[in-house]
Amino acid sequence: MSELRTERLALRGWRESDLEPWAALNADPEVREYFPGVLTREQSEASAARFQADIDQRGWGWWAVEVAATGEFIGFAGLDPVDEDMPFTGVEAGWRLARSAWGHGFATEAALAAVAFGFETLALPEILAVTTATNVRSQAVMRRIGMTHDPAEDFDDLSVPDGPLRPNVVYRLPSGLQRPVTR
C-alpha cells in the first residue's frame, strides 16, 4: 500500500481510530453542505471500509489524512476512478476535511500530493475533479493545484434531487502541468 507524505500531512490507510472523527466529520451539515445530506455513523464506517478495500486492492484511493506532527485525523484525500454513471471517464482527485482543518492549506497540500502520485507513480495522462457549481472553496483548491475548468463540460448530476446541488463543474489537469509539491 502506498502512503504519501508532505511537509505537514500523511495520506495513509484507514485505522479503527479514524472511524469516530470520520463519522463526526460526515455528520457535520457544514462539511456536507454540497452533498445531499449528512451520513450516519454506519454509512461513514461503510465508506471507510470501502476506501480501505480499494487501497488494499489497488495500492491507492481515498486515503485517510492526518497531521504528521500530531497524528490528528482530519479527513480524506486522494484519487479514485470516476463512477460509471458519470458523463466522462478518468481518475478524479478529491478531498473532504473536518471544519477544524479548513483554512490551513491542507486540502491543497493533500491534493498536490495525490496528483503528483497519480502522474509520477500511476502515469495517468490527466486527473480531473468534480464538484457542485456552488462549491467555490473546492473550486479554489482545484485552481490552486493547476486545474482548469471548461464550462462546456459542466453537467447536471441526476443522482441528486433537483436544486442547487445538481449543476456540477469539471476541472482537469493534464500530465506535465501540475505544480510542484511544496508549500
Rank of each mutant, 00 (worst) to 15 (best):
G118R: 09
T108P: 12
E84D: 14
N26Y: 09
A23N: 11
E66R: 10
L97K: 09
E45Y: 01
L122D: 09
G61W: 00
G37H: 04
L39H: 07
G75F: 06
G105A: 11
E45I: 02
W63M: 03
T40H: 05
E109M: 04
F106W: 15
A68R: 10
R32D: 06
R12L: 13
V115F: 07
L112F: 13
S17F: 02
A77C: 08
P87N: 05
A24H: 09
G78R: 02
E120H: 15
D54K: 02
E42Y: 00
G13V: 12
L79K: 00
R32F: 01
V115M: 06
G71S: 12
L39F: 04
A27N: 13
R50D: 03
D80C: 04
S100C: 13
R96E: 06
G78A: 14
F76A: 08
A101Y: 04
G71L: 13
T70H: 11
A113W: 05
D18K: 09
A77N: 01
E30T: 12
G103I: 14
Q52C: 02
G71F: 07
D85Y: 07
G13S: 15
R41I: 05
E66C: 13
V65W: 11
S44N: 04
L19G: 13
P87M: 03
S47C: 14
V82T: 15
A77G: 02
E16D: 14
W102L: 06
G13H: 12
A46E: 01
A107F: 07
D80P: 00
A110V: 08
A123D: 12
A68F: 02
R58A: 12
A114P: 12
W95S: 11
G94F: 00
